[in-house]
């Protein structure tokens, strides 16, 4: 059941973004920025967490979920450390995602060479 929910909800989010891309011709980089920022805002107004509890990976795997993680980190850090938390929370919470992408990406650059596209 939870797998079907993840499939359908994750799929719907992606399909909606596809419509956005086709209608606005936004470049993928801008789309990613937009998604993360929207995730932060949705988290901050309290909408994303209930959605996440319902949809599981359908809501956590899209970049919207990454934005929500940033928000949760900042909120927790602010609760614990006050102003300092504003500056530590975001990176602490997103550390796994960002570090893994950077480190695996770097290792990949050592192993793989640029290749031609066929299509």
């Amino acid at each position: 059941m939870e797998f079907i929910k993840a499939f359908i909800i994750g799929g719907i989010i992606c399909a909606l973004v596809q419509i956005l891309m086709e209608k606005t011709k936004l470049m993928p980089g801008r789309i990613m920025v937009l998604l993360v920022c929207t995730g932060v805002v949705l988290g901050a107004v309290g909408l994303y967490q209930p959605f996440l509890d319902f949809a599981g990976a359908g809501a956590s795997v899209p970049l919207l979920g990454f934005g929500n993680v940033l928000w949760k980190g900042v909120r927790e850090a602010v609760d614990n450390k006050g102003i300092l938390g504003l500056f530590t929370g975001g990176f602490t919470a997103s550390a796994a995602g960002i570090s893994s992408a950077l480190i695996f990406g770097y290792i990949a650059s050592l192993i793989f060479n640029p290749k031609m596209k066929k299509k």
């Binding site: 891309m21 011709k25 993928p28 793989f112 640029p114 290749k115 031609m116 596209k117």
Partner: peptide, 20 residues
């Protein structure tokens, strides 16, 4: 050259994108 042009004007070749 497809690859040098793509790299200069658009994206790295390993980056996924949909061509209109």
């Amino acid at each position: 050259h497809f690859a040098s042009a793509e790299k200069q004007f658009r994206f790295p070749l390993e980056y996924g994108n949909q061509r209109p």
